[in-house]
Design a protein around this nucleic acid. Structure first.
Lengths: 190, 190
DNA sequence: TTAGGCATGTAACCCGTTACATGATTTG
DNA sequence: CAAATCATGTAACGGGTTACATGCCTAA
């Protein structure tokens, strides 16, 4: 039962709450998980097929609603719940992050400081957009408190995002300041 | 010239400073880049071969020193420097992070809070170890100031690590506190 | 009517890890 | 001598993205 496939666990987790289609899974990930997870259709659909074969989920031919294209809804089986709870107890694997922005920064003495400043500004802009979304989520959650039994857990993931993104933001500001102090003659090439 | 292969850029960057072997590249990444980058031998050696073919690096048959096994040293070519500077000016691609710990947390109402508390403790321990290394690096750097012309850039990557890991650490403490407050009857299953 | 969102799926490709094989040299 | 470390390499595999193909429905 050694599941390296995290997509599989994501799907199992979502289906623990309610049956969903592949399309809906993707939408949920894109909207609520985007700051710590991502999935593509090219991954989701084949994995769903495999999971059906393995008997951890089953298709609940949930209607051809109003002559629309067939929507394949899936629900979790007891085997699926067992697999999910097993995975939850397994230790978290060491994540292998790769911050392209830090790699560029590390070697950025090959180009003018302005280049790197612009990269960091862009990074800061993108992450500030996400920070605004955090605030929205938080309000949404405090309004619907106790509606979901995983409410505290959701808040905690949010808290993670808020703290880390705040750290990103502060770093961006400081890094830009530091880069501005670098004299052009210290460069290697342009 | 659309390089998606980041390993290639890492190698180019390192070779800008001095010629290196595949083994040395791996050691540098493991020791100094580990908190924001990772590489495996199975990736490095084939990429080096490909880069040689493409003429961005060349092998400088750096001696069979004292009858030892042949060490293949590589140095960068002008084409390699051009490729690297081009990549540095290209925008940073949106990173797709996947925090397994947050995915587990999000769905952790399926198991007892103690399970998740232990995962977070482990996460905190691992990252605190790295935080100690940051302090060591910093001292090392302040001693050798001005020895390398990318000194400020290195310090900035370090600053990033320090800020983000501090955010991790604070979150861990708060999250564990919050999890302790969850009453067992709020769970779904065990 | 056409653009865009809903919905599913596949093929090609790349990226990267793991595991293994090989062999030399150093150190206990 | 055995174990660890230095050093290079390959094969197998899996994970994941991108791009494409298909088709339906709704709203401008």
């Amino acid at each position: 039962m050694k599941t390296k496939n995290k997509t599989r666990n994501l799907i199992l987790g979502l289906l623990c709450e309610s049956p969903l289609s592949g399309y809906e899974i993707k939408k949920i990930v894109d909207s609520r998980f985007s700051f710590f997870w991502s999935e593509s259709f090219g991954q989701i659909y084949p994995v769903l097929e495999k999971m059906k074969e393995d008997g951890v989920i089953l298709e609940t031919e949930s209607a051809n609603t109003s002559g629309r294209r067939k929507i394949r809804k899936y629900e979790i089986t007891p085997e699926g719940i067992a697999e999910m709870t097993f995975w939850l107890t397994e230790p978290v694997e060491k994540e292998t992050v790769r911050y392209e922005i830090l790699l560029k920064l590390f070697f950025s003495n090959l180009v003018s400081p302005e280049v790197m400043i612009e990269h960091i500004r862009e990074f800061q802009r993108n992450h500030r957009k996400q920070q605004l979304l955090f605030d929205g989520f938080e309000k949404e959650l405090t309004n619907t408190i106790h509606l979901h039994n995983n409410h505290p857990q959701v808040l905690m993931t949010l808290l993670f995002g808020q703290k880390v993104y705040k750290a990103y933001d502060e770093w961006c500001t400081e890094a830009i300041d530091l880069l501005r102090k670098i004299k052009p003659e210290q460069e290697c090439a342009t």
